[in-house]
Design a protein around this nucleic acid. Structure first.
Length: 275
DNA sequence: GCAGATGTTCGCAG
DNA sequence: TCTGCGAACATCTG
């Protein structure tokens, strides 16, 4: 269920446990998670013997950088990583296990099995799917006002759908889009190309600010998100609209309403966010 | 028990 | 070319 702040938190906790660990063996219990190479045996073969030297993040993707390859992992709705001793009983929804020479294991657990893993040669991460078409990370310098304004100006979609589009900006998901639009005072159904420059600026600033605050709080735990150590995030305390339907707006007191936008549950203060 | 929803993304159809 | 909708899957809530 992770968006950018949750993935960033997972990256930081995982780094404390897997750097310089060498993969001795791999088990895959649900092969559909492995997307590249398309053959699971090949996936296992090329990663065995590799040592994890660094973990990076782009948008909602984790990049495990090894000797000759990078594993690009997306957690989708429910994916989780944990590092445990090999003695630890394997949970029901654990689908991939990386066994280290140290006796520890990196385990991937995913109730809904939506997550994906791609292994590509080191240095070619951004040349192939799934990263080659991704928009800028919101924390990157390339996420400029001019870039963002042009993207919004050229589409006929509503602003919420555009913010969820990872080709426009990579990292926002349903929670942080709703929070960003509330903080910017923009209605999710407003057409992206109808936003004034001032509104675009505000949306961009609030997106970055909201994500930064959420990272500082270790992410948002609504149902099941935990970091690489099984700890919950704390940002849910700071939410203004997400999951706050039928409660008073923290700004004006009017009831927060829930609606559907682009098939996604969407939370809005009808008074603070004018269409 | 069943319909609908869940922090995501992709492929397909119009 | 662009946009919207179902599917991938399991579980929980009303």
């Amino acid at each position: 269920m992770p968006e950018l702040p949750e993935v960033e938190t997972i990256k930081n906790t995982l780094k404390r446990f897997v750097l310089d660990k060498k993969i001795e063996d791999i088990s895959v219990f649900w092969g559909n998670i492995i997307k590249e190479p398309d053959d699971v045996e090949q996936f296992k073969h090329i990663l065995m013997g590799q040592t994890i030297h660094n973990i990076n993040r782009k948008g909602k993707f984790l990049l495990f950088e090894m000797d000759d390859y990078t594993m690009i992992s997306h957690l989708r709705m429910e994916g989780k990583y944990s590092v445990v001793s090999k003695e630890e009983p394997v949970k029901k929804h654990t689908h991939v296990i990386f066994r280290f020479t140290s006796g520890e294991e990196l385990r991937y657990n995913d109730v809904r099995k939506f997550g994906t893993m791609h292994v590509v040669p080191k240095g070619e991460e951004f040349l192939h799917k799934p990263l080659n078409q991704l928009g800028p990370d919101p924390f990157d310098n390339s996420f400029t006002f001019d870039y963002f304004y042009e993207k919004l100006r050229k589409t006929n979609r509503v602003i919420k759908s555009v913010l969820l589009d990872q080709y426009v900006v990579a990292g926002l998901g349903n929670i942080y889009v709703d929070e960003t639009l509330f903080r910017a005072g923009v209605h999710p159904l407003k057409k992206a190309n109808k936003l004034t420059k001032k509104e675009v600026k505000k949306v961009q600033e609030q997106a970055i600010l909201t994500l930064k605050e959420a990272v500082a709080q270790g992410g948002t735990t609504i149902r099941s998100y935990v970091n690489g150590q099984g700890e919950m995030g704390m940002f849910q305390q700071e939410l203004f609209v997400y999951g706050q339907e039928n409660q008073g707006c923290k700004n004006c007191g009017k009831l927060i309403i829930k609606m559907k936008v682009g098939g996604r549950g969407t939370h809005v203060c009808p008074s603070c966010q004018k269409q």
